[in-house]
């Protein structure tokens, strides 16, 4: 039972019209927008992530990604294990000084536009690992867009962080 192309197009316009708060746009078969906004809308709903998972936060990351919380509902369900194919770097877990150059290299290998999420308190500030081994916040090494606190953060917090990142992507200047 293949959906007709027309129906699919209509569903797409409906979704965009609803989001722009303009019901008249819905089901009309056309819409007006700025190219920059349309690109932002496309980018925020097709995030390919690179999960840089080093510690226990990875469990919450997996819980968020799996079917119960289902990160794919937000268009970010596709992990890529090559930084060259990823849009957003999820740094999930404690980063040691020994690991820091590796993280920086992974970040540098990503293509623009790219974003970084600091997942969990260790990546935000070092957390309670205030010691000789641990980087005191990954923002001392690479730029961070969204900080998700928690030790570890619950999936709801992760999804909240993701939605804030999407908001940021939508409202930033689009390079293309």
């Amino acid at each position: 039972m293949a959906e007709s192309l027309e129906n699919r197009e209509r569903a797409c316009y409906d979704a965009l019209g609803k989001e722009k708060g303009n019901p008249r746009m819905m089901s009309q078969g056309f819409l007006t927008s700025k190219l920059e906004k349309a690109i932002g809308w496309a980018r925020k709903y097709s995030l390919f992530q690179y999960p840089f998972v080093t510690a226990c936060c990875g469990m919450e990351y997996m819980a968020t990604a799996a079917s119960h919380y289902d990160i794919d509902r937000f268009g970010a369900g596709f992990p890529r294990f090559s930084p060259r194919q990823a849009d957003v770097l999820f740094v999930v877990g404690t980063i040691s000084h020994k690991m820091a150059p590796v993280l920086k290299m992974v970040y540098e290998q990503m293509c623009d536009p790219k974003w970084v999420v600091a997942f969990g308190v260790c990546t935000c500030t070092g957390g309670f690992y205030d010691n000789y081994a641990t980087v005191q916040g990954i923002d001392t090494i690479i730029p961070v867009d969204i900080y998700i606190p928690g030790c570890p953060p619950r999936p709801e917090t992760v999804l909240d962080g993701l939605m804030k990142l999407q908001d940021k992507i939508q409202h930033s200047r689009q390079e293309f």
């Binding site: 000084h97 020994k98 820091a100 150059p101 090494i141």
Partner: peptide, 16 residues
Amino acid sequence: PLRKDYPIQKRQPLIG
């Protein structure tokens, strides 16, 4: 680092 006379606040980052 686990020697008791290693300064507790001493940091030796590779980058940053």
